[in-house]
Write a protein that binds this DNA or RNA. Structure first.
Length: 854
RNA sequence: GGGGGCGUGGCGGAAUCGGUAUACGCGGCGGAUUCAAAAUCCGCUGGCCUCUGGCCUUGUGGGUUCGAGUCCCACCGCCCCUACCA
């Protein structure tokens, strides 16, 4: 082989790593552990596109680096393989979703293996396989045992045509986004997990985590802790209702109350005169989705007076009670006291319906017009009896104390976080290990009854009666528990379930007796580095943290938190090319003709746009625009296409070279050219292009050594900081500086070692050709020689009035006086200070001189 | 409305503490090699000018400083997430 030929090098090393079990890892090691994890993929039918390997490559670079630094590295991979797309494909193709899923996984695996990741393939897991999901069921039993799983009647998005409940994100404008079928709100008995019991701990434990600030903030907002009070309002002859408020200090300004349409008191307190209007309003609200309510509310608030009055406990005043859908039954108590003077929503409502706006704070230094807008800020209390004059901060505890002492209310902490709707009316998910008795008892199966395997069904759709698909498996459905006839639960778990604990199963993936052994859990503890998309910032990460804490409470895991460090890679976008008719052309089918600019009508904006892009070989002009990779824009790129053209090492480096990992960036296949040329230059630097023999090592001059150690330093610091782009530049500079002269053995080998996390195949090939019999995967990481970084003389930039006018070279031990004298002697500098008075001379040692003269 | 992030050449991007703006690469232009091509190698490549030099340039406008892509204030534009949470 004379030319750089990844097509022969790469399969060779992939086979070698597999045969030699190079990356095999076990728990009986003296080395410190390092657990690197990428979010595992959903094995879709379309395979990986070049966006996926971004995070895998980053994790792989860290894993390889950590191995070379003496760590015992866990770097596993698996598949999040339950889920809706496979179930839909099963319906379409009339095949079993397991079959379809396994095919998809086979293609994903082929793709992944051709990219040279140092995964622990022997630890691969797939959440839809029974040897995995039996333990998901096992963990559910633990949750149930802890009292954290319960059945409840909850309002859900019911789609009659599909016969199933839909997630909120699947419903837009009251219709199922996929099919357009109408969706209605319906109360249904569903499995819920009591994540709210962990709200405070989920909030508190965020503090110790090395996570992006944005993700921490999103989790805090989602948990949504607030402090305030619950206050009781009496209604003549109808008992009382309780409101939740974070501003109990504005109680004197409460001029009306509002109940959510679903509030249980609405029907009872409504007067005959108002009943027709209230009933109509409540009915209309019930059939609107949350989304519709919000859209409508953005335009204008709606509501109806019930005819009833409640008593404000602080002053005995009678205030009207309204029903309005801007109050949510799912938050707080489903009822509020309205203070239009100090709350924007209440203000808008009061203005519309002509309700009183009574300020209870005077706004200092301001002539705030309360008729125009609410004032939610600070001030001094007025119209508040004995509390007049207090600030917000003083008033709050004072009024709460008064409410508690007089039996009208209590201090209260509230969370936005709600319990987790944990059941789906689907086939392709984990069955619940639950049975129902004839007299209505709901019982967990014993642990030794696991697994509850998915039964075969004749169709992946609901029964005639609207029961979930599992109800079709009548033989399976009816069973016995302790000799009693029982019926199995026919709901299945949501896709989140399997991904809640997969990182734990990787620790001990073949254990047949428990989800993972205590020894494995104690050794691996938690994930040291977790890389994945920011789209999982809230749900997946919150759910997994919740399960982890429950397992911690059960004594099954060693840490309170599962993921010590989290990093989000930015999405890789791709250019899409569209002609005026709206047709998309694949990026491979278009070309840029510089200088041949034409104006066409944009299919996106309908406006004229200039473009120099054309469909290759035709006269059809197309418009270029950046978008998400996918079928709809016809701009997906299969990583195997890149591997075939340039090799996996090129793909890996290009993915990293594109820019900072966290940044959103556009894919440009042409960018691979530069990387491929670079790797070709590396090859020719060490392998004779005519004979194919390894070239004899030469001598390394000072410049070469410096470039090498700059690259080692950049690579080391870059990996530690998860900055993978700039080290590539420094390695390119090293190769450029060699100018085709093979460097000395020490420099060549160190270079191969630092290149290896990015381009493992090429590095291994060189390493072997240099006579090493073992893989370089466990060679010590090269150390920076700081002395090699220092030049013989220093270059000093000389500025006059802050503008660069020249540069001088001085010795390391030059004094400030010597440097300044040399600077002023520089001809172009002299020209700029001639005839002027020097006011100031600034010397930044080793860097720069600035002469201020005028 | 709230939260997070980002604006640097034709393009992706680089620039430690405030100290040479545009590293590295793509694309483009020119050349070498070749019968020719591919591949490879070399040179040029932010704009303008009165061109051994100078002026301008990091979204816009101010400010601090000897010196600002970097710090401060105001504004403009784009992206992502979230949404009546009392």
């Amino acid at each position: 082989m004379t030319r750089y030929d990844p097509a022969s090098i790469e399969p060779k090393w992939q086979a070698s790593w597999a045969d030699q079990q190079t990356f095999h890892v076990s728990e009986d090691s003296d080395k410190p552990k390092f657990y690197a994890l990428c979010m595992f993929p959903y094995p879709s039918g379309s395979g990986l596109h070049v966006g996926h390997p971004e995070s895998y490559t980053a994790v792989d670079i860290v894993a390889r680096y950590k191995r070379m630094n003496g760590f015992n590295v866990l770097n596993p991979i698996g598949f999040d393989s339950f889920g809706l797309p496979a179930e839909r494909a099963a319906q379409r193709e009339n095949r079993h979703p397991a079959e379809i899923t396994r095919e998809n996984i086979a293609y994903f695996t082929e793709q992944l293996q051709k990219l040279g990741f140092s995964f622990n393939w022997e630890r691969e897991v797939s959440t839809c396989e029974v040897d995995y999901y039996r333990w998901t069921q096992w963990i559910f039993l633990k949750l149930h045992e802890q009292g954290l799983a319960y059945l409840a009647e909850v309002p859900v998005n019911w789609c009659p045509a599909q016969g199933t409940v839909l997630a909120n994100e699947e419903v837009v404008d009251g219709r199922y986004v996929e099919t357009g079928d109408p969706v209605e709100r319906r109360n249904m008995k569903q499995w819920m997990l009591k994540i709210t019991a962990y709200a405070q701990r989920l909030l508190d434990d965020l503090d110790g985590l090395d996570w992006p600030e944005g993700v921490l903030e999103m989790q805090r907002q989602w948990i949504g802790r607030s402090e305030g009070a619950e206050i009781d309002f009496e209604i003549d002859g109808h008992g009382r209702f309780t409101v939740y408020t974070t501003r109990p200090d504005t109680l004197f300004g409460a001029t009306y109350c509002v109940l959510a349409p679903e509030h249980e008191l609405v029907g009872r307190i409504t007067t005959d005169a108002q009943r027709a209007a209230v009933d109509a309003y409540v009915d209309a609200a019930r059939n609107k989705s949350d989304m519709e309510r919000q859209v409508a509310a953005e335009k204008e608030k709606t509501g109806v007076f019930t005819g009833a009055y409640a008593t404000n406990p602080v002053n005995g005043e009678k205030v009207p009670v309204w029903v309005a859908d801007y109050v949510l039954i799912t938050y707080g108590t489903g009822a509020i006291m309205a203070v239009p003077a100090h709350d924007e929503r209440d203000h808008a409502f009061a203005k519309k319906f002509g309700l009183e706006i009574r300020p209870v704070y005077r706004v200092a230094d301001s002539d705030h017009d309360f008729d125009q807008a609410a004032w939610p800020g600070e001030g001094n209390a007025v119209n508040s009896g004995a509390f007049d004059g207090l600030s917000v901060k003083q008033f709050k505890p004072a009024i709460i104390d008064w409410l508690e002492q007089n039996g009208h209310g209590t201090r209260k902490v509230n969370y936005k976080l709600r319990d987790w709707l944990f059941s789906r009316q689907r086939y392709w998910g984990e069955p619940f290990p639950i049975v129902h008795t004839e007299d209505g008892q709901v019982l967990p199966l014993p642990y030794d009854a696991l697994p509850v395997a998915l039964p075969h069904v004749d169709a992946y759709k609901p029964t005639e009666d609207g029961d979930p698909p599992l109800a079709r498996a009548t033989d399976w459905l009816h069973t016995t528990l302790d000799g009693r006839p029982v019926t199995r639960e026919t709901n299945t778990m949501p896709q989140w379930a399997g991904s809640c604990w997969y990182y734990l199963r990787y620790m001990d993936p073949h254990n047949e007796n428990e989800p993972f052994s205590q020894a494995a859990a104690r050794y691996w503890k938690d994930v040291d580095l977790y890389i994945g998309g920011v789209e999982h910032a809230v749900l997946h990460l919150l759910y997994a943290r919740f399960w982890h804490k429950v397992l911690y409470d059960c004594g099954l895991v060693a840490t309170k938190e599962p993921f010590q460090k989290l990093f989000n890679q930015g999405m890789i976008l791709a250019f899409a090319y569209r002609e005026t008719s709206g047709k998309y052309h694949h990026p491979d089918a278009v070309e840029r003709r510089v200088g041949q600019t034409r104006t066409i009508v944009s299919a996106w904006s309908q406006e004229p746009v200039e473009t120099d892009w054309y469909v290759t070989g035709t006269d059809i002009a197309v418009e270029e625009k950046l978008g998400k990779m996918g079928k709809s824009l016809n701009n997906s790129v299969d990583p195997l296409e890149i591997v075939a053209r340039y090799g996996a090492d090129t793909l890996r480096i290009y993915e990293m070279f594109m820019g900072p990992l966290e940044q959103v960036k556009p894919w440009q296949t042409s960018g691979c050219e530069g990387i491929h040329r670079f790797l070709g230059r590396v090859w020719r630097l060490f392998v004779d292009k005519d004979t194919g023999e390894t070239r004899a090592f030469g001598d390394s001059d000072k410049d070469v050594r410096k470039a090498l150690h700059v690259a080692i330093k950049e690579a080391t610091e870059g990996i530690e900081a998860l900055k993978f782009n700039t080290p590539v530049s420094k390695m390119m500079e090293f190769v450029n500086i060699c100018k085709g002269q093979t460097p000395g053995r020490a420099e060549a080998e160190a270079f191969a070692l630092i290149l290896s996390p990015w381009a493992p195949h090429l590095a291994e090939e060189l390493w072997q050709r240099w006579g090493h019999e073992q893989s370089l995967s466990y060679e010590p990481w090269p150390q920076v020689d700081e002395s090699a970084l220092v030049d013989d003389t220093l270059e000093i930039i000389v500025q006059v009035m802050g503008k660069k006018r020249g540069s001088i070279r001085v010795a390391h031990d030059a004094t400030q006086d010597q440097v300044l004298a040399a600077a002023k002697a520089e001809p172009n500098v002299d020209k700029h200070i001639a005839g002027k008075t020097i006011r100031k001379e600034i010397y930044v040692p080793g860097k720069l001189v600035n002469i201020v003269a005028n």
